[in-house]
Design a binder for these strands. Structure first.
Lengths: 213, 213, 213, 213
DNA sequence: GATGAATGAGTCTTCATTCAT
DNA sequence: AATGAATGAAGACTCATTCAT
């Protein structure tokens, strides 16, 4: 963003400042929604936390709903990115699944605010939620198809795999709901048996043998 | 409102009438929340639908939140009961799981109102949601423990089973979110491959072999 | 509204009180609009003057616009009635016209609030204004038709008479705009020559002879 | 924007550009007010239409009210000028009146924007409205005095003539309100009987004989 | 116990105006 | 002189809750 002319023209551009304000609003909104939930996130609270006037908000978003809709995409991307980098490329199969699960929990712990933003979005920002979900599903689909190609997964057709993806995502969410608790040290407190249970389900299924056997 | 049969002992007890009003409120609330969501369920809408005055509401509930909290227990019981009776006693193993899943979808289809009441409860009636969840978990625990006793399930300890329960419940919820659509004929429109995917996961797991193999 | 039973049941009915509140709001609105104009008539001002809470307003009107729309009908009726009774039945012809004009001015003087309510209505309560206008036009039409029947008016067909009515009403309005000034003693300060000018126009027209003569 | 003709002396004067911007604002304001009315004419709308920044506005006008006040004088002058040139110099007497009326209607049709600017001005730009009115009255006074001098008008003293002027102007306004409708071809759609009614009133008055006869 | 009018705190949103760049 | 971001006062409206009848 540096213009090449003035060797040390330091003052921020108007545009830069605007971008900054935009982000300040977004961050403030994330904070407030994360703590109080969408329903109790008034413009007043958000702008106050952002350190701007109420009116300023409306220079950046047309309605309150609009920030709500922007919130999940903004944070969701971070999360997806985090998981991607946190899971080593060479981990494969079910181990990859559990690694992803662990990474998800870790992210949640590190960003306690994200939980409500994500889970209340289904109610308060359904469009954003649907889109976020679609991104996750699409990402997963690719991963599972590669696993199929590698022969790690057998006996599921494409449609069934989609259903499976929904189950995997749901598991994530509910396990988080149940087990992730904010720890002051920021370390995941999800007990190890949750991970092993998940991994076992992935590898051997729940019921030893098909019941028609 | 007088029934013609019993010559006397006619008038309803004060208590009976009170009970009736209480239920009318509850039903109205269920209807309204089911259609508009908790956030848009004003006392005014509820009392109007119940055919009572706004003030009357406060003779039965202390706050709006209180009806919200009463809603899920009230309807959840019905659902649990429905599933119990819908699944034949002699179906066992993974087949039992899928039967339960089917029953759940069927119930949702038959009671479209229940969906929002249940899923928004996590946000708007967290206490009720937690309690409802606990009931489901407890019910499941018994069932799974019996399966373990019968030798249908092996290799999961008690803690792991709890995690599995969470996964099963989550799967239900998300699959419903994705696939249950209100059909006019009231029949479940959840595609069959969803059921089979679920069942396969239950029986063989997702990944063919433990990846450390 | 007196019930016949209780000889001296004095307390006001709920309904009576509601009616009273409704009228208090209407009167307050009339006062405020008359003084500050529609644009500056906030709900806050109105309710404050009416001595009620802001919320109470919305028990009687759904929107601010709704009071605005109710205002002119409410006051317009009074005005029409006043003019009717103020003009003796036996005054006929142009004299009747001038008597009506005088009565109008007198009413305006006595109800200074009415002026803005009426004239800003075209902008702020167009529906009400149109209706009010129609009532005036209809009233006038009857009167003029009777004058035609009596032979006092000749040479105007029905359509022309309607145009004339518009002119008469407009004259009223503009002359009021120009000449009616609030006098502390409440007496019309419209100078006599205004009346005579009007009367002359009614009787001999402005230009001595048709210009094609 | 460079015109090709004059080889040099090219750049617009600073003053010229300023004048240009000033007029652009005025035109934009006229457009906006004409379409949305004064009340809904925000600075934002006006500057947007004018193609300038909001802040720029305040280099040319101190307040919003100030443009509003400038609007009617700006456009009123055009109208007066139009009527003056549209009415042939040799038309006299009542025929001149009707010619002026026709011209007014034509102007209104050709400048649909003018209608609201003019009629809402009484409410939103009273000062401007009063001044505009005064100009019209003064113009009329001269005309009528000349008619008196020519003997076309008799029996009205100066004060009465002023009242008459108000009536004439009011008639214009209300007849326009009632009858002028925007026609796509831009031709006045005011029905002919309106003109004849007006002319009859001017020449013979409404009531055949003075009622004291 | 039922009623429904009254309350008033709280919300989102608009917009004229200011001012640093 | 132009810009456009920032401001904050003001306004309409909603709704859970109270309380006199």
């Amino acid at each position: 963003m540096q213009t090449s002319k003035p060797r040390r023209a330091r003052r921020k551009t108007r545009e830069e400042k605007a971008r900054e304000t935009y982000l300040r609003i977004l961050e403030a909104a994330a904070q407030v929604v994360g703590e109080d939930g969408y329903a109790d996130s008034s413009i007043s609270k958000i702008t106050q936390l952002a350190g701007i006037a109420q009116g300023t908000f409306y220079n950046y978003f047309e309605t309150r709903q609009q920030v709500f809709d922007a919130l999940l995409p903004y944070m969701g991307e971070q999360m997806v990115e985090y998981i991607r980098t946190a899971v080593p490329a060479d981990v494969q199969g079910a181990a990859r699944e559990t690694a992803r699960l662990r990474a998800f929990f870790t992210y949640l712990n590190a960003h306690p605010v994200f939980y409500r933003i994500l889970y209340e979005a289904e109610v308060f920002a359904p469009a954003a939620h649907a889109k976020h979900f679609q991104i996750l599903v699409d990402g997963y689909r690719g991963a599972l198809e590669r696993a199929v190609a590698r022969g790690e997964i057998e006996g599921y057709d494409a449609e069934e795999l989609e259903a499976i993806i929904y189950i995997l995502l749901s598991a994530r969410a509910y396990l988080a709901m149940r087990y992730v608790r904010r720890a002051d040290d920021g370390r995941s407190t999800v007990p190890e048996h949750v991970i092993t249970a998940y991994e076992k389900l992935m590898t051997r299924g729940l019921y030893g043998k098909p019941d028609h056997a």
